[in-house]
């Protein structure tokens, strides 16, 4: 996989979630995503950015435009140094929530993208990587 463009954004306050959404929208349009794909990616980014803020106590997101053979896509990596997720399996279950959402954050955003990867360690933080191909 080749990264052809990248950028990193802070997620510290709730306004940053809006900025992340706007950046993801811009990048998705540049990549020529269909309207539905754009919306899915923006929504997934919004869910995960809010997770980073609420549960991870703030962090960063890295945006990358990736290419693999003929495929082009957008990869987002959300990273925080928060408390981590003690029970990952439970957190990935529909309807499970400890916060302000509807418990659809992790499990829902997984369904909105093509690739989903999560690494978490209690006391050290969480990293979620999602990719959507055009």
């Amino acid at each position: 996989m080749v990264v052809t463009k990248d950028d990193t954004m802070e997620i510290r306050v709730s306004d940053h979630v809006v900025l992340v959404r706007q950046a993801v929208r811009k990048w998705s349009i540049e990549l020529g995503f269909s309207l539905v794909d754009q919306t899915k990616m923006i929504t997934a980014a919004s869910e995960l950015a809010r997770n980073t803020l609420d549960y991870g106590k703030g962090g960063t997101v890295r945006l990358e435009r990736v290419e693999e053979g003929m495929k082009k896509g957008l990869r987002l990596t959300f990273e925080d140094q928060g408390p981590g997720i003690p029970d990952l399996e439970k957190a990935l279950t529909d309807g499970y929530t400890t916060g302000r959402g509807m418990g659809m954050g992790l499990s829902g955003s997984k369904r909105l993208v093509n690739e989903f990867d999560i690494a978490t360690k209690v006391g050290e933080g969480t990293r979620v990587t999602i990719t959507r191909w055009k």
Binding site: Q38, T39, T43, E47, M104, S107, S109, L112
Partner: peptide
């Protein structure tokens, strides 16, 4: 509600 938004919401599970 726009179609793309509706499709995404359903996929999200809402």
């Amino acid at each position: 509600m726009r179609p793309a938004v509706a499709i995404t919401l359903v996929e999200l599970g809402l």
